[in-house]
């Protein structure tokens, strides 16, 4: 409980480090924060050309089908990759001053959440322009976003602290995330997976989260709320476990860095 109070006392530092991660990233570039739009937009463009035209699939409105899954994936991918570096790159200040170390992974996850919410504008525009529209199922969306944020907080705690001790994690994650990309129903639809492999795919929490985004935004259906709640609890569990790992490992950060 004390830790929460302490993090609250350091709220200004939390805010400035979120701002720094958000703004500092693009500070020297010509287009600035616009890059947080352009990056996923270009990525989308590539996939939207490759899959329908070259690999030929017959999904209606493939660009919309893709965008509603790609944006949450980018949020996931960026957060995980950046979180692995979040403590290590701040080694300088960790060795110099005391502050609740939890602030570092929290600000990585939160600045990426803000970024994701901004890219949400692209998704909404795409939904409206393409004629898919927005249905009443959108009321469930905040639950999914919060769930993903909780999952990412937990993973950020885990990867940011473990990387301090084993630097390879940062590079392993790059490879692993590529695998995860194809293990999640982003460029294809979940029902294209052969039934015998489905149980393996279902172990991946992002498999479900991506599917929920697509159900809500593209198919405009409300997902089975019982399974949403179950996954929500699983994400909370990951957060608790992640926090405990971080808490144990943080004591020797200054010595290991």
């Amino acid at each position: 409980m004390n830790k929460f109070k302490e993090i609250y006392n350091y709220r200004e530092f939390l805010k400035t480090s979120i701002r720094k991660e958000f703004r500092g990233k693009y500070k020297k570039s010509f287009l600035g924060v616009l890059w947080s739009f352009l990056n996923p937009l270009f990525q989308l463009l590539v996939y939207a050309l490759v899959f329908p035209f070259i690999l030929r699939n017959d999904i209606d409105n493939y660009t919309v089908f893709l965008i509603v899954a790609l944006m949450p994936w980018t949020f996931f991918n960026m957060t995980v990759i950046q979180s692995a570096a979040s403590v290590v790159t701040n080694g300088g200040i960790i060795k110099k001053v005391y502050f609740p170390r939890e602030i570092l992974p929290i600000s990585t996850a939160t600045s990426n959440l803000l970024n994701f919410l901004i890219t949400g504008i692209i998704v909404i525009v795409a939904l409206l322009v393409s004629g898919v529209g927005i249905g009443p199922s959108i009321v469930v969306l905040p639950i999914i976003v919060i769930m993903q944020y909780i999952l990412l907080l937990g993973l950020s705690f885990i990867f940011s602290s473990i990387t301090v001790y084993v630097r390879d994690v940062e590079y392993l994650l790059n490879v692993f995330m590529m695998l995860m990309f194809y293990m999640s129903p982003i460029v294809y639809s979940a029902d294209m997976i052969p039934a015998k492999f489905l149980p393996i795919f279902k172990l991946n929490p992002m498999f479900h989260i991506i599917k929920y985004y697509r159900d809500i935004l593209y198919y405009q259906q409300i997902p089975n709320m019982a399974s949403v709640m179950l996954l929500f609890l699983a994400c909370l569990l990951i957060l608790v476990v992640g926090y405990l790992i971080f808490n144990r490992l943080e004591k020797r950060f200054a010595e290991e860095l």
Binding site: Y10, E12, F13, T16
Partner: peptide, 25 residues
């Protein structure tokens, strides 16, 4: 100078640095 960011102004860095010490806005 913990947390100083070279690209930001002295004034902005006062905020960064002071906030590391746990000060509120």
């Amino acid at each position: 100078g913990a947390g100083f960011h070279p690209d930001f102004s002295g004034r902005e860095n006062i905020y960064f640095n002071a906030s590391i010490f746990g000060l509120t806005k």
